[in-house]
Amino acid sequence: MATINALDFTVKIDDFRRVKVVEKTYSGKLLPNQVLLEIDQFSFTSNNITYGVVGKQMNYWKFFPTQSSYGIIPVWGLANVVISNHPDVQVGQRFYGYYPMSSHLLVTVNNVGSKGFVDNTKHRQALPSIYNFYVNTEQDPTFTPETEKLISIFRPLFVTSFLIDAHLAEQNFYKTSQILITSASSKTAQALACLLAFRKKKNALNWNLLGLTSKRNMEFVGQLEWYDQVMSYDSIAQLNSNEKFVVIDFSGNHNTQFQLQRFLNKNLVYNCLVGLVDWQNLEGENPLPEKGEFFFAPTHAEKRREEWGVSGFQQKIGIAWLQFMEVVQSTISIKEHIGVQELEKLYSDMLNGKIDPKYGNIVSLNRMNKRL
């Protein structure tokens, strides 16, 4: 069988602005239980930049190793089986999951079931299991041609938002009167705001949901109608520091954190650190009074699985996801990027904060001759 040409989009680990496209080949003859997937499409959001920023601390660089001093940022997307040496995985099957920014991925299949399989490649065995499962889209009715792109963009982020929402509810929202979300236009923040708005309406809760965003994104965030109030970053001093606040920080901006901690002081009852959207401003001159609590979604997911059982966990997420899908489709437009050059442009724009939040970005490195 002929070899298959492939490529990886890699970034310099200590300088994200330096990228390199690595060409390689796969043999048509695979080892037992190996499967070669052709990555059809993947989403790219600010969450993927966070994967890179914390890649070393959180072992994200270990999922898809490449040349020394370079890394492959993980993404979420869909791929088709092009070669299979596993009896229960067939050529043509389609799987959703955690992929490299690449044209192909070679996996070692284990624990095959009707819903999917686990990649048991040696270097992935010690990494969080939530990232190693690949969903068979034929067995999941939520995957349709109309929903696939939205699923790639929002589902992994939605799970994080769902877990934050569940945590806040479990803690009775820390008895706060104000919940403030930074980087309010980001996709994960959108999902969390939607979930909190649903919960607030259903249970007649009396806290106020605030979205903090840049001035250029205020109109978009306001149009979402999930936030009770939208403010720009230069309006922090206008917050009512006499009320208790929960802050969910997707920005990671050091100066924003400093202002919030100093201004709210003891009334900042829970400071939840989630994302690093503003990756260029993670440090500042003023030391932070407190660091806050980092929210690591896989740990919270394991906790919920133990409490609710695997089926209970999946059912709760599924119900919330369908509610979210009903409303989010009207808030976003899909923007498609084909080939390496368009990916490089998207990646650069994301690094520099030049992304319009009304778009959801989908990338394909394999569809050079036709549009998605």
Rank of each mutant, 00 (worst) to 15 (best):
T144R: 03
D165G: 02
Q238C: 13
N369I: 08
N136A: 03
P87W: 13
V159S: 09
R367E: 10
P87V: 15
A204D: 10
K175T: 14
V82W: 00
L196Y: 01
K335N: 07
Q314H: 09
L106Q: 01
A320W: 04
G284V: 00
Q257M: 15
L192D: 03
D356Y: 09
P141D: 14
H104D: 02
V35T: 08
F173S: 03
Y347C: 05
K115W: 15
S129N: 15
Q315G: 15
I164T: 01
G52D: 02
A189M: 07
E219S: 14
I248S: 01
V89Y: 03
A169I: 05
G113W: 06
S103E: 01
I164D: 00
W207K: 06
S103M: 06
E302T: 14
Y174K: 11
P100D: 00
V112E: 02
F117T: 04
T10H: 03
N203L: 07
V277M: 12
T256I: 12
T121K: 12
I236P: 12
Y70I: 06
S333E: 08
V247L: 06
K12S: 13
I338E: 13
K149F: 15
A189Y: 02
Q329E: 11
E290G: 15
I317C: 05
G28W: 06
F258E: 12
H86K: 13
P287C: 11
W308I: 04
L239T: 07
N217D: 09
K24L: 12
M325A: 05
F250T: 01
N80Y: 12
M1E: 09
V75L: 01
K201D: 05
D8E: 09
M1H: 04
Q190L: 08
R371D: 12
I39E: 02
Q259D: 02
I334V: 08
Q139S: 15
E23L: 04
S232G: 11
F250N: 00
R304Y: 08
D234Q: 09
L372G: 11
